[in-house]
Amino acid sequence: MSSVSESPSRSSPVCLITPGARRATLRTDDGLSIEAVYEPCTTGAGPGTGPVGAGTAIVVAHGFTGAADRPAVRRAARVFAQRAAVITFSFRGHGGSGGRSTVGDREVLDLAAAVAWARSLGHRRVVTVGFSMGGSVVLRHGALYTAPGTTEATRGTARPVPAHGGRTEAHADAVVAVSAPARWYYRGTAPMRRLHWVVTRPVGRLVGRYGFGTRIDRNEWNPVPLSPVESVPLIAPAPLLIVHGDQDPYFPLDHPRMLAGAARGGAELWLERGMGHAENAADESLLTRIADWSVAA
């Protein structure tokens, strides 16, 4: 089980933390400390409002080199907080969190700790919204952490139901993946070739650490984690939304279409005209629509 230590909201380089927000240090199941921020809903009506413990909480999973205090993450949190309570956090190796980034593998434990914190605050519904790397993480998390009573029959798949420590309190009630890859090791675009250089080369990892503030694990995946497209069929019966820009420079449109196809009709697919990649490209209108979907799903 994860542990939580809370403190009053400390000063941030980005002054967008709302009054009443609280910061916490979460402990993952593999023993890492993860920084997290809880923000109550800022409006007075709607299914995500009321005191702590009421309604929906949206847990935001940022992209590679992001963090809880990055401007794009804070902007998303501000928009989402108009509809629901919001938890943002920094993945391992990012921001003030411990450890090193495994670029989508063990990050599922970080997300699980954040979801479990939302439930410990009393939220009845928790929706995970992930961007890019965070999008792959929310898909894997949705497959690995299941609600009590979920069976192969309710999932609609004959594959074995994966378990992850039996922590059913860490499951998501709905999942949103924005700008997520469908498969691992993709190098079909120039930005992804540069990213692989950063992750796999010693000099690249130095660039990641000192240029982007991201500490990257040097070890290769062993075993290779369940891929996003393999995860999608295991998310049902939880609702799934896949969002992707038609101008995404990292992952072309075959990625979201592959993910939606793997859902066998169990996912909504939004292809956004003119949108680039992940949280930096998501405008306020799109974020508002995602928030509305999250509280209604």
Rank of each mutant, 00 (worst) to 15 (best):
A153N: 07
E39D: 03
I34T: 01
E39T: 06
S7V: 04
F251G: 06
A172T: 05
R75G: 13
H255Y: 08
V79L: 14
A153M: 08
A170S: 14
S2T: 11
L240R: 00
Q82T: 12
E268P: 07
A143L: 00
L206E: 07
E6L: 00
T25M: 00
A45I: 01
R218D: 13
R209L: 15
E152Q: 11
L16H: 04
V37Y: 01
L287T: 04
L240D: 09
A54Y: 04
V37L: 03
R119W: 00
G274Q: 06
R155V: 12
V37I: 05
V60D: 03
V175D: 12
E230S: 09
G213A: 11
G50N: 13
E35T: 05
R10F: 03
E152I: 03
T28Q: 05
S132T: 05
H164I: 08
R183A: 07
P40N: 08
I216Y: 00
F131G: 04
L121I: 01
G122A: 07
A21C: 12
G149R: 03
R264W: 01
S7Q: 07
V137K: 00
G213C: 11
H255L: 05
S294A: 15
S227L: 01
V73C: 06
L259R: 11
G93K: 05
G274T: 05
G99K: 05
A174W: 04
G53M: 07
R78V: 05
A118P: 10
Y145P: 11
G63I: 02
T128Y: 01
R159H: 08
A296L: 14
T154F: 00
G48A: 13
R194N: 11
R140S: 03
V224N: 15
G93C: 12
G95P: 03
G122M: 03
V129R: 03
D30T: 08
A296Q: 13
A163L: 01
R167A: 12
V129C: 14
V295G: 08
H141N: 10
L241G: 15
V37D: 01
A84S: 15
T150C: 02
S7N: 02
G149Y: 00
L111Y: 03
G130D: 06
G134I: 02
A260R: 07
R10K: 05
L226Q: 14
R155Q: 15
I242P: 11
W117G: 05
S9R: 06
S294L: 06
T102C: 13
R218K: 15
P47C: 15
V137Y: 00
S33F: 04
G98E: 03
D110M: 01
A260Q: 13
S9A: 14
G165C: 10
H164L: 10
D30G: 13
G149I: 00
G55A: 09
P256H: 09
W117K: 02
T154S: 09
E268Q: 14
A114C: 04
W197S: 15
E272V: 11
Y185T: 11
D69F: 04
A278E: 04
T200W: 12
T18E: 15
E35G: 10
V60W: 02
A112E: 03
S9V: 05
R167H: 14
G265K: 10
T18W: 12
W197P: 06
M133N: 11
T56W: 00
G134V: 09
A85T: 01
Y186F: 15
V161M: 15
